[in-house]
Design a protein around this nucleic acid. Structure first.
Lengths: 262, 262
DNA sequence: TAGTGGTCTAGACCACGGC
DNA sequence: CCGTGGTCTAGACCACTAT
């Protein structure tokens, strides 16, 4: 794992951390770095890719690599509660004031397999989607990328769900009003490497993992529980973490009763 | 992004998925694959690295790549509760019957920065560690890699914490007995690329992200809350997900009172 | 000693953006 | 048109393993 590429990567990394290249500034071209370090351009290329994987650089075709803003270490973005303000439900107190980086888009696609399964759809069945890119005011890239999946059948029955603006409180209020029952949510967290769209939207390299929070919304309808919506939020794993308090099951009550202490 | 390397990767991937190579079997050497596809060996090398990144292969130095067991998609490993059985607390109902793949080790290291911060240690201060590799019975690789960090000061005061076997119920029971107070836990989830030790222990490539669950144990001592232990569990993100139910804050109670419905 | 993965150089070609 | 990143080939070298 040692070698010339490593030497170059270490040198450039140190230069970035020493502030020799400002965040947002472009690096010298591969050719000139090769000259500077006395190695072949291909070797520089590998070093640059490595640094992009570590989150130091964003690389674009036909433009020199750009130094990313300092990875602001881990920010907690969730806890185990859902809150409500005058607008509607929200799940993330930090992101409350975020704005859409781009106008939300609506469409229809075949959801990823685990989403289809949650919604009870056939693997190749289409779903209605709504996509939002959210970020703090003034951010260059989106920090979170959220896609909401709804069964076509449901959108057909309840026209407001497919509207450009479903009204105050969003689709969750529409659902609770329509079914006259409370929504229940479950969040599942995993991680994977980003696809092309996620790389572009979040400004990250293929090697930087994204944290995926899949939230399913369940509601009771005629005595049966149905999953009405699945929301998948993706964020760069190096910048975000998800946190929650652990709750004691009845079996773990304290103080404990039936244990003989010495 | 298209090219010869892609063609080779697609071909080999299809062969694996068609079952032409059994899980555990070795692939042909790079040289012979290069011949077979009519490309240069370096191109094959890139394709193989890509497939390893996708989780299909495990690559080892100087040995042909080995086909990994089919990534069994996402397995939920947590919910928001902590449970207790006759042995002690446990956080994961699925992993209840897992066994240690290797004998647990004890030692002392400088913890990662976020762990030091949680424990209230100086960035370069050492901590007592206990490391376990857990997996289902008979597994080739460990599925989860857990490290427990304790402040040296605490281990000095309470000798049982540093013992090879802290007794039934583990260190959590020791702490609750000693401080006569209940532990409280918080879990924070993020993801990153694995370091060398994690790659070896979990049998994954550098490009496959690991999910990191950091659990801090807080206990009240003389009226102050102290973080007595931090446990960091790592697992391959392609195989595991963490799931929990979302709870309604008081602001999000249902049915809602003060809203005029039309 | 032969064969393996892993790395590097040298040189070539392509697609595309900016001049 | 030139310069950029991105890719591929050809050929070399090394460290190590299996024989």
């Amino acid at each position: 794992m040692n070698g010339e590429a490593h030497r170059v990567a270490d040198g450039v990394r140190r230069a970035i951390e020493a502030g020799e290249y400002e965040p947002g500034a472009a690096l010298p071209s591969g050719e000139s770095l090769a000259e500077q370090y006395g190695v072949h351009r291909g070797t520089v290329y590998k070093a640059i890719k490595q640094l992009a994987a570590e989150g130091y650089l964003t690389i674009t075709r036909r433009h020199p690599p750009v130094v990313r803003e300092r990875p602001t270490h881990v920010t907690v973005v969730r806890d185990r509660n859902v809150y409500r303000d005058e607008i509607g439900y929200y799940f993330d107190q930090n992101a409350k004031d975020w704005a859409a980086v781009k106008k939300p888009t609506r469409g229809a696609t075949v959801p990823p397999p685990h989403v289809s399964e949650l919604l009870g759809l056939a693997p190749d069945e289409m779903a209605f989607t709504r996509e939002r890119l959210m970020g703090p005011p003034g951010a260059q890239y989106a920090h979170q990328l959220a896609t909401s999946y709804l069964p076509m059948r449901l959108v057909g029955e309840i026209a407001e769900l497919g509207a450009e603006r479903p009204g105050p409180g969003g689709i969750y209020d529409v659902l609770e009003r329509r079914f006259n029952a409370p929504l229940r949510w479950r969040e599942t967290i995993s991680a994977r490497r980003p696809d092309r769209a996620e790389q572009t939207a979040l400004g990250i390299s293929p090697e930087v993992p994204v944290l995926v929070v899949t939230r399913s919304s369940t509601i009771n309808h005629n005595g049966r529980d149905i999953v009405a919506e699945v929301n998948e939020t993706r964020m760069a794993a190096e910048q975000f973490a998800v946190s929650y308090a652990v709750q004691r099951d009845a079996s773990a009550a304290w103080p404990r009763q039936e244990e003989g202490e010495t």
